Amino acid sequence: MSPSEPPTPGRPGRRRKNSEPAELPAAADQSAPGRADNSADRAGGRRKGGGRRKKEPRRFGRMLTLLVGALVVALVALGTVLFFDLTGDDEQQTAQETRPALYRIQDSRDSNMNVVLSSREDDTRPLNEGELFERHNSEISGQSLDFTLRDSDLTEDCSAAVWGDGLQQALTDADCTQAGRATYVSDDDIFGVVTVFNLADIEGSRAVAQAMELPETEEDEEPVDPGFVLPPSGNDPFDRLGAGYSAADAIITGHYLVVVWVQPADSESVEERVSLVAPLVTLANFRNPFFRRIGEVGGGEGTGTEEGAGDGTEEELVEDPPLEEEIPIEEQVEQPVDPGE
């Protein structure tokens, strides 16, 4: 080798002979067995345990759907609650605490009913809904008027049927055990409420009737209202009861007290005085069940009107005198004075 030729790579101090094979790179020698093994694995159709695994499907999408559905249901429920809070539910309207412009007590002291039904000790059977609100009392006719039952309620909580501390105390003192209430409407634009209290005796009935009267006061003194009955419903038109001119009769019926309260549907002021004799007398026929009780307690036949007999007017209740008629409005108004006198 001439001095100008570069040295042959290899170990220092040793020259490679042309006949010696060149050394293979270590990387090539080490990779060959691996490739053979991989080929063998692929030929067998199975992957080693340490190979790449298939990913499981994600559950995030399903959970998101459930959350969105729950949110929609919650929003619908909230919207429903807000709607009824803002608009109000007619079924939940309560009656107004008012009283009639005219209130009277009807007490026929010598009537057969007041004698026979004078005490609950003799008339022990409690009132029931069928007795009070069915048969004749589902529709009451008389005085050329026809009333139809709309709402009814029978409760043992007498204080729930009235307002006013004075009246509630009077019911407690009279040992009230039941209060039945009914609302009636007519095609003649008259609506009314009938309330009956089951009291211990006739003296308690009279005491409760007197407790509903306004006390007498001086002209410049405002009387303390003892309270009055409440309709079982405050829905139209009974939300206007007492706002217009209305009249009520408290009828002593033995140990029961029956209160009849009526008002014209078009009346808007207590100053609009009209005669309400006809509707008061007609709805007083609500007492028909008590006439039948006379037969039960007295041992004879009841004197109330039987189904299909007559027109259900007050005059047919022959054992009890007719209700006292109201003085016509024309006679209540003072006559004008002649300027020439």
Rank of each mutant, 00 (worst) to 15 (best):
Q178L: 07
R273S: 12
L145R: 13
V68Q: 03
P328I: 06
V229S: 08
V196M: 10
N112G: 10
E316N: 11
G244W: 06
A101W: 10
G10V: 00
S205P: 05
G164F: 03
A26P: 13
A284C: 08
G242W: 07
V72M: 00
V277R: 15
D146M: 13
L102K: 03
F60E: 09
N38T: 14
A174I: 13
D153C: 09
R14T: 03
A265K: 14
D146E: 14
G130D: 09
L257E: 08
E301S: 14
E219P: 04
D110C: 03
M212F: 09
G13A: 04
G10E: 02
F286N: 12
F191K: 00
S205M: 01
A161N: 01
A170L: 01
L154S: 05
R46Y: 12
V229G: 05
V260S: 12
A160F: 02
Y256T: 12
L86Y: 05
L145A: 13
P279H: 06
A284R: 11
V270W: 09
I252N: 00
E216R: 10
R120S: 15
D311K: 10
E330Q: 06
A95D: 02
A160W: 01
S141P: 07
V185R: 04
R120P: 11
D188Q: 15
Y103F: 15
A74P: 00
G10H: 02
G304E: 05
L171C: 04
A265F: 14
E203L: 12
I190S: 04
K17F: 11
T313S: 09
I190Q: 05
L66M: 03
R120N: 12
R109H: 03
H255Q: 08
A43R: 15
T195N: 10
L82Y: 08
T124Q: 14
V185F: 10
G204E: 11
G204K: 13
L71R: 03
T155R: 15
Q335I: 07
E334D: 04
L276A: 09
T282M: 01
R58T: 06
P226E: 00
H255Y: 07
L230G: 04
T87Q: 04
S108A: 11
L167C: 08
P279V: 03
E121A: 15
Q332T: 05
Q106V: 05
D37M: 07
L117Q: 11
R59Q: 02
Q169E: 07
E307W: 15
D175N: 12
V333R: 08
G300L: 08
V76Y: 00
V208C: 13
L24H: 07
I105G: 11
P231C: 03
S269W: 01
P3Q: 09
K54D: 02
Q263S: 09
S152K: 09
E56W: 04
R62W: 02
A95K: 09
P322I: 11
T8N: 11
G49T: 04
R16P: 14
T8S: 14
S119V: 11
P126G: 01
F238D: 12
G164D: 02
A43G: 14
K54P: 00
R125E: 05
P9F: 13
S39T: 05
G244Y: 13
A28N: 04
L154C: 06
R14I: 07
